[in-house]
């Protein structure tokens, strides 16, 4: 395998990782601040993609589509938080799992009812289409480079939000002691709605960005949901930094594993069985990674408490 191919695959892993980060960040925030397991987070990812596809279809503008994804997912998130989620904060994890499992059913079939059973069209705008040549002669899609840049920008933005703003202080306070900030006069239910909507908006935004190079269809959020859970558990639940590191680890492991494992087995096996064993193992790789991390560090890489 040439160096150029390897660098290209590392970029691919990075890109996959930063997109995972957008989804995982919301999930980990919601868990950190409210202590809620939200299985329906993937549905908000889907809402963002469908909103973007609809607006892009109507207006032809990708920027408007992205704005719509943020708005629609945030609105859906706020609505769900007010109607359902806020009744779950005081419940145990089991009730949360069941309620948000029910929300997945409602979101998925509701979306199918509104948009039909066929995948929607959403494509990257012309000004981001096509490849660019990077130093060293690597041809790489401009859109994917943009995704990496956007992902890193959002991560930086989140860092600023949490470390420098009033909302960030409240979020951090909420993570360490929920009763205390209520006692200090912070409107806790408003804070929770905002945090949940923020997490939803990030997921919806990721859905729209990724939807442009994937299939916008019902159920697209569920694989992402499972991966996002893997990410936040590896990183340590509640930690944004952990979510970022975890995303990149998962992105790189998954991408490079799929490429390198079959090559590795080819060193001492015939081609057909090496491909077969390698591909089988690579699909299990991130779960193996997660199990190893948790066995070594039971609260994830950056997890504060059990």
């Amino acid at each position: 395998m040439s160096l150029i191919l390897l660098i290209e695959q590392i970029l691919n892993g990075l890109q996959f990782g930063v997109m995972l980060f957008l989804t995982a960040a919301g999930l980990t925030l919601v868990f950190g601040v409210m202590g809620l397991i939200n299985l329906a987070h993937g549905s908000l990812f889907m809402v963002g993609a469908f909103a973007a596809a609809t607006v892009a279809g109507a207006t032809g503008s990708f920027v408007l589509a992205l704005a719509a994804s943020l708005a629609a997912a945030a609105a859906a998130g706020a609505l769900v938080e007010i109607l359902v989620i806020r009744r779950l904060y005081s419940r145990d994890h089991l009730d949360q799992v069941l309620a948000t499992f029910a929300l997945i059913l409602i979101f998925s079939e509701g979306t199918r009812w509104l948009f039909g059973s066929f995948p929607l069209y959403l494509n990257i705008p012309d000004y981001l289409a096509g490849p660019v040549t990077l130093p060293g002669g690597i041809q790489y899609p401009l859109y994917r480079l943009t995704l990496i840049a956007i992902g890193l920008l959002v991560a930086f933005g989140l860092y600023l939000l949490i470390s420098r703003t009033r909302l960030g202080i409240q979020i951090r306070a909420g993570e360490s002691d929920r009763e205390m900030i209520a006692a200090l006069g912070v409107d806790i239910s408003k804070l929770y709605t905002i945090v949940f909507a923020l997490g939803a908006a990030l997921a919806g935004f990721a859905g729209a960005l990724v939807g442009a190079i994937q299939s916008v269809q019902v159920g697209m959020g569920e694989p992402v949901l499972i991966l996002a859970f893997v990410v936040i558990v590896i990183g340590g639940i509640g930690s944004i930094k952990g979510a970022l590191i975890g995303s990149l680890l998962v992105g790189l492991t998954d991408t490079l594993g799929g490429v390198l494992l079959p090559e590795f087995f080819k060193l001492f096996m015939d081609n057909a069985s090496a491909t077969s064993v390698g591909s089988s193992l690579s699909t299990m790789l991130i779960y193996i990674l997660m199990a190893i991390v948790l066995v070594m560090k039971p609260t994830g890489l950056f997890g504060a408490k059990a």
Partner: peptide, 21 residues
């Protein structure tokens, strides 16, 4: 080359790089 991807996979950047190579 013969590449087998994960069922339900949504990102093919790695495979596309292999095709390019």
């Amino acid at each position: 080359d013969e590449v087998y991807t994960k069922l339900g996979q949504t990102d093919y950047a790695a495979e596309i790089a292999q095709i390019r190579a």
